[in-house]
Computed example of a mutant assay.
Amino acid sequence: MSTRPYVIDQMISAKAIAARIEELSEEIKQAFPPDQRIVVVGLLRGSFVFIADLVRELRDRDVEVDFLEASSYGDGMNSSREVRILKDLRGAIEGRNVLVVEDIVDTGHTLNHVMHLLESRNPAKIRTIALLDKPNRREVDFRADWIGFEIPDEFVVGYGIDYAQRNRNLPFIGKVRFTD
């Protein structure tokens, strides 16, 4: 698999991400009853770093983690708008409190599709959080309950987000700038 040559310009530092996750975790704690378990549903693969840091901030809560993998990108840079579920949840969510964690909301198709699927399973309460939001790219009327950062229409990598399976391990969010 080849990719075009590129460089990465830092947009959001690791320190800024950590501070924002701490703030968001406090808001999440206020939204869910303190004596009830929260099922954190991570949308793979891009959100895995965000999920790990977020659940650590929810350390004083009873948290269960499950994963769902949906795809609308493949190895490309643009959404195909066709959402496919590649891996479903292992556990049931009926009657449970659910927090869906997404890395980035772009066109909105993936999260909208996933929310319809999960809502059909009758959770007690379901909320969404996205690390990044690109509202200028939205094609579906969907907004996550919590947003880490609103960003312009740039192709980004890092902190779990990839370009053709590369750069997920960067501790920051960076803008991809092609050099060819």
Rank of each mutant, 00 (worst) to 15 (best):
R4S: 08
V7S: 05
I8S: 05
I8W: 05
Q10H: 04
Q10V: 06
M11P: 03
S13F: 04
K15N: 12
K15D: 14
A16K: 13
A16M: 10
A16P: 15
I17G: 03
A18V: 07
R20T: 04
E23R: 11
S25P: 03
S25A: 13
S25T: 02
E26T: 06
E26I: 12
E26G: 03
E27K: 10
I28T: 11
I28F: 04
K29R: 09
Q30A: 15
Q30L: 15
Q30K: 14
A31E: 11
A31V: 01
P33L: 07
P33F: 01
P34L: 15
D35A: 11
Q36H: 02
I38Y: 01
V39S: 00
V39P: 00
V40S: 01
V40G: 01
V41R: 00
G42H: 06
F48K: 03
F48T: 02
F48R: 09
F50K: 01
I51E: 07
I51N: 07
I51Y: 04
D53V: 02
E57T: 00
R59N: 14
R61D: 03
D62E: 05
D62Q: 00
V63Y: 08
V63S: 03
V63H: 04
V65L: 05
F67E: 00
F67Y: 13
F67L: 03
L68D: 00
E69H: 14
S71D: 14
S71H: 11
S72F: 12
S72Q: 10
Y73L: 05
G76E: 08
M77P: 08
M77T: 15
M77A: 12
N78K: 09
S79L: 12
E82M: 15
E82R: 11
E82D: 10
V83M: 12
R84S: 14
R84A: 12
K87P: 05
D88V: 13
D88N: 13
R90P: 00
I93C: 01
G95V: 00
N97C: 11
N97G: 01
N97L: 02
L99G: 02
V105G: 13
T107F: 14
G108I: 06
T110A: 12
V114N: 02
M115E: 02
L117C: 06
L118W: 06
S120Q: 10
N122Q: 13
P123N: 08
P123S: 09
R127D: 03
R127L: 06
I129Q: 08
A130I: 06
A130G: 11
L131C: 15
L131Q: 10
L132Q: 07
K134N: 13
N136P: 01
R137Q: 10
R138G: 07
R138M: 12
R138S: 11
E139R: 10
D141Y: 03
D141C: 05
R143N: 05
W146V: 00
W146F: 07
I147D: 03
G148N: 01
G148D: 03
G148W: 02
P152F: 10
E154L: 11
E154A: 12
V156G: 04
G158V: 09
G158H: 07
Y159Q: 13
D162A: 12
Y163C: 05
A164S: 14
A164N: 13
A164T: 05
Q165F: 01
R166N: 09
N167C: 15
R168N: 13
P171N: 09
F172V: 09
G174C: 13
V176I: 15
V176W: 07
R177E: 00
F178E: 03
F178W: 14
T179R: 07
T179A: 04
D180R: 09
